[in-house]
Design a protein around this nucleic acid. Structure first.
Length: 573
RNA sequence: GAUUCAGUAGCUCAGUCGGUAGAGCACAUCCCUUUUAAGGAUGGGGUCCUGGGUUCGAAUCCCAGCUGGAUCACCA
């Protein structure tokens, strides 16, 4: 990196780095640092009457400094929070040499540096629990300036809020916005709670392929890649459903996977190209059983996270206490439109759509029209957890037909806060029916539906060997985390949401200018004087460049030889 | 993909009618023995997102582009 690209403060920090080395202080020491306490331990448990925490050793990042002559205060932040440090010159440097305090601490320590300190806990005159520092060690120097965020009585000053920077440089976001960490700690807790529950019941956590030759299990556009050695296209999975069911065929009675899926579709507040889904399949169960399982699971997660089943989502309070309401799709439509569509044929449905001002075109079948009516008129009303059950068969090619009505399937989606959270089936295990459903998808594909499912003949073959009755359920972990933590954007529950790559501002280096004949002493200053590229410089007349650069030399009192015009003329030839 | 808003110092933001770019924090220098958004004084720091255009003159007006946000569309 050329010095020309650094800000004033960054240059100062690099100079400090060198000064420290000159003094024999290594800014990036190899040795570890023994830590025997966290900031939280001291905040929670320090009691001067008990006289505890009198030999503490703690490490973290310096987040603020207040220097007043021989005494100074600083804030140290570790993973658990912050604590104030008190530095006193004569305590730290009992002898004649005061350089550890005067030079290392006062001059060359910056906000963002990692240090380790040893000392004892005490309470200041202002009543704040603090550490009286006897010894300190620089553990790692920070060369970039962190945003400064201050807080007083819950009011945050100068918050680091720029969404683009927060997502691109999540590490900075996490350092200065502690509430961000909290969302991700909760996310881990959600996943752990679910995993513990599944393991207690004896279900097996498994891993299945992400690179798939046939991207099955969901209607979605896949990412495509290429395997060189096999010389075949491979797809990033859009779902893991078909692999998990193969494992049920193989004799496992309960399998689950926390899986990253990938869909090459639009991005918005609720969609990221890669996202996490938990799918679970349990043998000898049907979708009624799975509804009970799902509501128990969510109740448990809410309790583990909040100690209550009631969760605030925006202005609304959602109660995850089981059991949840069950409503068939047709009843939901009846409830919210007053129209009973059961038994209607395609033309009748088309008229209903027209009456409800729902746009449909000629290609829409019955299933798709029913789905449209539900999406337009019902979905957003489902604030409290509600199981919507019994979907039209056209929409669910992997789901078993309804035991009482062949036009429907035994499927449920769990709606929360007007959005889909879970999707589950009594799984289709009739291989002949499955093949026909795949063939129907192929017809859709031939009509131009680029999201129709591929035919997976190996999956059909697996079903031909026999799969026990099985129920399966999938739940979006990102969306669940959004609900459980009150975040409105998926970007706030992913550490590194997908972003368009940062464009490197193409800036010339001094070497580029040296190549066209610019003296080395001048190269850096040519850039600083405003010539961002060689081309830019060569567009101008030699006389103009000559004047501008010598003017720059004079203005900045540079101690380098002034340029001659004939010299400059040679650069632009 | 459409509409719309935004992009100015390391960070958060002002910037009037088009007339040489401002504040707070951070930073530097000096002074200062326990401060709490927290010492005081002084000072330095800018590709006003990029490229065109209009103009004597553009951070400001116009056009195009880049990046991000929001809304909508698409998306089980």
């Amino acid at each position: 990196m050329s010095i020309a690209e650094l800000s004033e403060q960054e240059i100062i920090r690099r100079n400090s780095l060198q000064e420290l080395r000159n003094m024999g202080v290594e800014p990036y020491p190899q040795a570890g640092y023994d830590v025997n306490v966290t900031t939280q331990d001291i905040r929670d448990s320090f009691d001067p009457e008990k006289g505890n925490f009198q030999q503490v050793s703690i490490a973290g990042r310096v987040m603020s400094r207040r220097i007043m002559g021989k005494a100074s205060f600083a804030e140290l932040m570790d993973e658990k929070g912050r604590i104030q440090l008190y530095f006193n010159r004569d305590e730290m440097c009992p002898g004649e040499d005061k350089s550890l305090y005067n030079e290392v601490f006062k001059k060359h320590l910056d906000i963002g540096d990692f240090i380790g300190v040893k000392g004892h806990a005490f309470i200041t005159q202002m009543g704040e629990k603090s550490i009286f520092v006897k010894e300190f060690t620089l553990l790692s120097k920070s060369l970039r300036v962190l945003p400064i965020v201050k807080e007083k009585d819950g009011v945050i000053y100068d918050a680091f809020t720029d969404a683009e920077q927060r997502y691109r440089q999540r590490y900075v976001d996490l350092v200065v916005n502690p509430q961000v960490k909290d969302v991700f700690i909760k996310r881990a807790k959600i996943i752990n709670t679910m995993r513990e529950m599944f393991n207690e019941r004896g279900y097996l956590e498994v891993e299945t392929p992400i690179l798939q030759a046939i991207p099955g299990g969901a209607a979605a556009r896949p990412f495509i890649t290429h395997h060189n050695a096999l010389n075949i296209p491979l797809y990033l999975r859009v779902a893991n459903e078909l692999y998990l069911k193969r494992l049920i065929v193989g004799g496992f009675d309960g399998v689950y996977e926390f899986a990253k899926d990938f869909r090459n579709e639009g991005m918005d507040r609720t969609h990221n190209p890669e996202f996490t889904v938990m799918e679970i399949y349990v043998a000898y169960k049907d979708y009624f059983w799975m509804m009970e399982f799902t509501e128990q699971m969510l109740e448990k997660v809410a309790m583990a996270l909040h100690g209550t089943t009631k969760v605030k989502i925006g202005e609304k309070e959602v109660d995850f206490k089981a059991p949840y309401r069950r409503l068939t799709m047709l009843d939901a439509i009846k409830e919210h439109t007053g129209i009973d569509i059961s038994g209607m044929n395609e033309d009748q449905l088309r008229n209903v759509c027209k009456d409800l001002h729902i746009e449909v075109d000629a290609t829409f079948g019955k299933g798709k029209m029913i789905d449209e009516i539900f999406g337009e008129k019902c979905e957003h009303h489902m604030i409290q957890p509600t199981f919507i059950i019994d979907y039209p068969v056209e929409m669910s090619p992997l789901c078993k037909k309804h035991r009482n009505n062949p036009e429907l399937t035994e499927r449920f989606e769990l709606m929360v806060n007007g959005k889909e959270l879970c999707n589950a089936y009594t799984e289709l295990n009739d291989p002949i029916d499955q093949l026909e459903r795949f063939q129907d998808q192929l017809k859709l594909s031939e009509k131009g539906d680029d999201e129709a499912m591929f035919i997976d003949l190996d999956f059909v073959r697996a079903l031909e060997y026999g799969m026990p009755p099985t129920s399966g359920m999938g739940i979006g972990i990102d969306r669940l985390t959004m609900f459980m933590t009150g975040q409105e954007s998926i970007q706030d529950v992913l550490f590194f949401p997908q972003m368009r790559p940062e464009k490197k501002a193409k800036t010339a280096t001094p070497e580029d200018f040296v190549k066209i004949g610019v003296p080395e002493a001048w190269a850096e200053h040519v850039i600083k004087a405003g010539y961002a590229s060689v081309e830019k410089l060569q567009e101008e007349k030699a006389t103009q460049i000559h004047q501008k650069l010598n003017g720059y030399r004079k203005k900045n009192k540079l101690e380098i030889t002034a340029l001659q015009l004939d010299e400059v003329e040679k650069w632009i030839l």
